[in-house]
Design a protein around this nucleic acid. Structure first.
Length: 519
RNA sequence: GGUGAGGUAGCCAAGUGGUUAGGCAAUGGUUUGCAAAACCAUCAUACGCGGGUUCGAAUCCCGUCCUCACCUCCA
């Protein structure tokens, strides 16, 4: 079977060029990606999930095009915020960041994100960081100054990057040096040659959290880790570098400056810069500093992980994404958009379950009339689904096509029950449609469990959230079944009303009465 | 002030020059003891506002209003 995506058809928005461009690879058939990961001082929120899902989607799309992907996503485990948080709790900074990193990896795995090829930590790459800083000093791109004195005692020296010595500064973010200088909120620091210069290494007191260096004890500046670790695992230069839009300036701008200065004459640091949009709560960016964040764990306590994943891939990765939080009268917090996405996940799994429940053995023969039309529609939907992904990861379009495929399946399953004479062609269409649905879901990273397992885990979780007991529901359903057997419709309907009030939905099928917990 | 993103039907959300994106909600229908689910149909001649270009504009151009983000840490 042909690959669903033609690698030469893939185009991505490149921040550096301010527009979409066909994917260009340094080595045919292989893609290298560096993605800026989290600073691990707290549990991951929905914004981190969006970032991880954007990377995962990118990787899946590239793989669907037959490309070999090598992805690196850093864990920033050395940072002032980690230190500050650790001081509050009395925990060792390294222990805190390691604990948070483990939680992050757990959460992202729950969202169906594959583990990147390498997830390097800053604390384990200090030698590489020191080496690149020394190179920058040797090339005249960086300079050493006396450390900031502190009451804790003698501090190591600082190293700063000489921004004005790098020609292309501002090329990613579209900023001009003089504008930056004039609009500067950068605090003046007499030790710096220029206010725009940024730290590669910050000295600290001998008894503080840090590492030994040629400039005394200290910690790396924020940006240098990515220059050092990307070179370590991808070599200098990469095909795609990505992260959140807030990183364009200064983080990525500085990464470019450091890396290209250290590797002058070796070409661009990254060919394509990919940046995703934010999650907004009440139109404001979800962020830790604003305190308006919802953690992934908060969401997973109420909703299925696949609902959050579907919600995320239902929107284009570069646009803003509103995340609503509602408070119910009983004080429970709900996420209406995620609930809606979960109902769609229910729908998709129910669709697959209906296919599972029937035998759709392929039988040979020509499809004619409406069946030929349905078959053609499926081909068109499959093409649309994958074309959309090749077009700057437009997964929202892919999701739309996926719903249409599910509708075809349901339509055919209904028909299968009614048009007994046409069962062979109908079964063929269903078999093909189910295959297409799974193929699309795979690249989106949804529908990863067998339908019956999904149903069980959803029921369990929803009962827990509502504080209900399955045995009690079972009893009410049985009582209603008995009333129905006695044709006591009034009694049966009273029980149903009670179940509805509790949040239980029932359905009478050929094999008896089933029930679901509503989300 | 500079830079960037965005404003599309009741709501969410694709679409960057010409044929129904999709979903939610609502209404009608098929089905059902009645329902639920599923399917079909309607809602939908929508594109912040004002000009302009064009046979034709949500889409291009000019102007303008509004929202958000970045310029300090942020996914």
């Amino acid at each position: 079977m042909a690959l669903p995506i033609d690698p030469s058809a893939i185009s991505l928005h490149n921040t550096l060029r301010r527009g979409a461009a066909p994917l260009k690879l340094r080595e045919p058939g292989k893609v290298s990606i560096y993605w800026c990961g989290p600073t691990t001082y707290d549990v991951a929120h929905v914004g981190h999930a969006r970032s991880a899902v954007a990377l995962d989607l990118l990787v899946r799309v590239l793989r669907a095009a037959g490309l070999e992907v090598r992805s690196v996503r850093n864990v920033t485990d050395v940072d002032d915020k980690i230190l500050a948080r650790a001081k509050e709790s009395g925990e060792e900074p390294t222990a805190l960041s390691a604990r948070m990193a483990a939680l992050y990896q757990e959460d992202m795995a729950a969202l169906g994100c594959e583990t990147p090829t390498v997830e390097p930590r800053v604390s384990e790459h200090i030698p590489q960081i020191l080496a690149i800083i020394e190179t920058l000093i040797a090339k005249g791109s960086a300079y050493v100054v006396a450390g900031e004195p502190s009451e804790a005692g003698e501090a190591g020296k600082d190293v700063y990057f000489r921004v004005r010595a790098f020609d292309g500064y501002g090329k990613l973010s579209g900023r001009k040096l003089d504008e930056l200088e004039s609009g500067a909120r950068v605090e003046a620091d007499a030790r710096k040659e220029d206010p725009l210069d940024f730290a590669l290494w910050k000295g600290c007191a001998n008894d503080a959290w840090g590492w030994d260096s040629p400039w005394g004890k200290g910690r790396p500046g924020w940006h240098i880790e990515c220059s050092a670790m990307s070179a370590e695992y991808l070599g200098y230069g990469m095909d795609i570098h990505g992260g959140g839009m807030d990183l364009i300036f200064p983080h990525h701008e500085n990464e470019i400056a450091q890396s290209e200065a250290a590797h002058a004459g070796e070409g661009d640091f990254a060919t394509c810069w990919t940046h995703h949009g934010f999650i907004n709560v009440d139109k404001e960016k979800m962020s830790k500093s604003l305190g308006n964040f919802v953690t992934v764990r908060d969401v997973l306590a109420r909703n299925d992980a696949e609902a959050l994943r579907l919600f995320l891939v239902s929107h284009h990765y570069r646009g803003p994404l509103g995340f609503d939080v509602d408070k119910l009268e009983d004080g429970r917090v709900v996420f209406p958009a995620i609930d809606e996405a979960e109902r769609k996940v229910d729908y998709l799994y129910t669709t697959l379950a209906r296919v599972d429940a029937m035998t759709v053995a392929a039988t040979p023969g020509e499809l004619t009339g409406d069946y030929a039309k349905a078959n053609k529609e499926l081909d068109a939907l499959r093409k649309e689904a994958f074309d959309a992904l090749a077009d700057d990861l437009n997964a929202a379009r892919t999701v739309a096509a996926m719903y249409r495929v599910a509708a075809v399946i349901n339509e055919m399953v209904d028909l299968h029950g009614r048009k007994k004479g046409d069962r062979a062609p109908i079964a063929r269409i269903i078999g093909k449609a189910a295959h297409v649905l799974r193929e699309i879901a795979d690249v989106l990273g949804v529908l990863r469990t067998p339908a019956n397992r999904y149903r069980e885990r959803s029921r369990e979780r929803r009962l827990r959230v509502l504080g209900l007991d399955a045995a009690k529901i079972q009893g009410l359903v049985q009582a209603r079944t008995d009333a129905r057997a006695a044709k006591d419709w009034a009694a049966a309907d009273t029980i149903r009303a009670e179940l509805t009030r509790l949040g239980i939905e029932i359905y009478d099928g050929a094999g008896g009465t089933g029930w679901e917990v509503k989300i």
